[in-house]
């Protein structure tokens, strides 16, 4: 099975190099191991994340693309759908078989026809529009809901830190 996964990852990598989507870069950290990727996501414009470039890792399971990868931001993030350790909680990354009803019906789910590109685009739009239903970071959820100004200040602090402006 892992050869299927490796073949597929190589194809996806080539595809991302050939037709890089706006604001996204991704690829294996080490060419000998196709199962660990690093990616950079640009903060979407007109959001508090604007201007930041956020590094994250993608870890692919041996049975990729039957199961989704895990994604973790390696910088500090303040967002309702990102755990404090950086792990991203978004419907497209949930392993199949999870109770689907706990998510918004229209949300995208993982299946083998999804791709790294789709994930990163979904994460980008998640940065712009947090999903209120899944509270991975409860503090961030609460602040986002009750004090939008405070939320934006926290996010902008993260942006400055990731750019190295603030230590």
């Amino acid at each position: 099975m892992s050869s299927v996964a490796a073949r597929r990852l190589l194809k996806e990598y080539r595809q991302l190099v050939d037709e890089a989507p706006d604001g996204i870069t991704a690829g294996p950290i080490d060419e000998d191991n196709l199962f660990e990727w690093e990616c950079l996501i640009q903060g979407p414009d007109d959001t508090p994340f604007e201007g930041g470039v956020f590094p994250a890792t993608l870890s692919f399971p041996k049975d990729y693309p039957l199961s989704p990868p895990k994604m973790r931001f390696t910088c500090e993030m303040f967002h309702p759908n990102i755990y404090k350790d950086g792990t991203v909680c978004i419907s497209i990354l949930h392993p199949p078989g999870d109770d689907p009803n706990q998510y918004e019906s229209a949300s995208e789910r993982w299946s083998p026809i999804q791709s790294v590109e789709k994930i990163l685009i979904s994460v980008m739009s998640m940065l712009a529009e947090p999903n209120d239903e899944s509270g991975a970071n409860v503090d961030a959820s609460k602040v986002w809901r009750e004090d939008r100004g405070g939320y934006e200040r926290e996010v902008k602090r993260c942006v400055r830190r990731v750019l190295g402006i603030e230590g």
Binding site: L66, P96, R109
Partner: peptide, 12 residues
């Protein structure tokens, strides 16, 4: 929607 929840994902 049915396809995206019950048909496409593996192991459902």
């Amino acid at each position: 929607e049915y396809c995206s929840i019950f048909i496409e994902p593996f192991g459902v």
